[in-house]
Amino acid sequence: MGKKETLIKKVSVAVRHPLSAGKRLTKRLLKKPGRAAVVLFSLCTGLSLSHAGIAAEALVAVASNFTAPAKDLAAMFEKDTGHKITLSFGSSGKMLAQIVNGAPYDVFMSADQAKPEKLEHDGLAVKGTRFTYALGTLALWTADSGSSAEAILRNDQYQHIAIANPRLAPYGVAAEQVLEHLDLTGSSQPRRVMGENITQTWQFIASGNAEIGFVALSQVMKDGSITSGNAWIIPPEYYQPVKQDAVLLKRAVQNDAATAWLAYLQSENAAVILQRYGYGNFPVTP
């Protein structure tokens, strides 16, 4: 009885510190081959239990505009399901290039529809798993809370207006459409500065270098209200909706955590978080 307990203890030590304890244990086990078989068996079952398991892991590539809600969602998801989600943030273009070149992502949450579509078309994503997980809302924002972003734009009181590069970011395309709609394309052109993504665009405005600029509402909103400065939530009829699609990647066909995550994104819980961060077309009080 006592002997058995010490053996179990040593096995557990060996599992935790295979190099240090391994030698002594092997020596002992070699003397008693019967016991060795038992130990090996229990080791194997232990390992397979953790593998076939209830809890799985997934690595998710997320467009940077969705950083804050994704973190909240992942924390809730892990608590609710026991699965583990690791988030990786960046621009959709860079992530697409990484996926094409073999990056180990299980799910891709893009800032647009075109890139997940392309992956599906090229056979790198699982057909039929693509869906729109968020509808981006555009806001004109100034870091100065004492003024109105809309008035600054309409009264032409700015030296620089920041937008995301329309070649790279869907929010940049939407910003151009808004300027076009307001008939301000020409007058804003020489004063336009471009961020390579929506995060950098926010930085230009937050640092005061651009008086106003177009950002994702999610960047300046938390719990349903504007966190700092002043924002004009652009009426949805001024631009084409920014549809952000997610897709399951080929390597994750068998990954329970990845499929559960995609389902979770479409749940009621997710809808609540999305609203708090200003995604979707619904009335918001600034």
Partner: peptide, 8 residues
């Protein structure tokens, strides 16, 4: 160059 890469 960076723009070209990002725009694929």
């Amino acid at each position: 160059i960076y723009d070209h890469v990002e725009a694929l």
